[in-house]
Design a protein around this nucleic acid. Sequence first.
DNA 1: ATCGTGCTTCCAGCGATTGGAAGGTCAAGG
DNA 2: CCTTGACCTTCCAATCGCTGGAAGCACGAT
Lengths: 146, 146
Amino acid sequence: MDKTGNEGAGNGGAATGGVTIGDAAKASGVNAKLIRYYESIGLIPQAGRTASGYRLYSPAEVHVLRFVRRARGLWFSIEQIQTLVGLWRDRDRSSAEVKRVAQAHMDELEAKIAELTAMRDSLRRLAEACHGDDRPDCPILHDLAG
Amino acid sequence: MDKTGNEGAGNGGAATGGVTIGDAAKASGVNAKLIRYYESIGLIPQAGRTASGYRLYSPAEVHVLRFVRRARGLWFSIEQIQTLVGLWRDRDRSSAEVKRVAQAHMDELEAKIAELTAMRDSLRRLAEACHGDDRPDCPILHDLAG
DNA sequence: ATCGTGCTTCCAGCGATTGGAAGGTCAAGG
DNA sequence: CCTTGACCTTCCAATCGCTGGAAGCACGAT
């Protein structure tokens, strides 16, 4: 409870060049369990280990985690993030490729927005027609029943 | 291949008052596998059976399936549909209850639309700033990297 | 009798997490 | 030294709404 914040249960941090998963989680905003999951599916490379098996994360690796978290926040799929991380790592790659991934994702978002909006609109029309009182008849059900 | 369309592999249909699951699927638009799944989770009641164990569906039951399908098409959750089906069956229930479910669902849709729109907008801003050519620097990656 | 289709059950997986159990490890306090 | 408690490890299961496959009956037609 009285942790000072920068070094958890680990082996000392800077000397071996990494923090434990808990600290990496705090620093990146990605849950420790999720970090292990990301490693298991190959989104991030396998972390180094201490002699006793604890995972260790360098500042660069924490940075990648933060990157992943932001991309997830923008609803990129894991697959898309995998591509983006690759592009990010490889600074020599062209920005055209990045833009293409972003554009594809935007198209997906756009489609989903349109779909949801259509749903909301038809539902709104039905709800407006539904008097919403004690009477049992309701156009919402009527419409769903076809 | 030369099926006439109204009676499949079943036992004759109208005599026992029901069609088999395949025909119910065709008539309702709900996949046979999905119908069984819906039964297994209790969304629809257990279907009657022939002597040999085939499920049989009355027109009314097919109607329920169609109802479910439409509601799913509006992205209602299974739980919400369960409520709606109950309300639909029970004609004496007030329309206020239906309207409440619909409103709750619309609120969910609205929230998701807002979220997706925000994502799309920030992504669009980034993409516009990305020159998208051979040069490696790209504000999209820059922003994700934080 | 045999073919082809449809039906049955069960089991497993998708994507992206989240949760828990069972056990090892660490630093600190008594 | 030994306990405490926070942390770490792995593995397995659940979520939600399906979808797929495998193995085995049932049916109608040839």
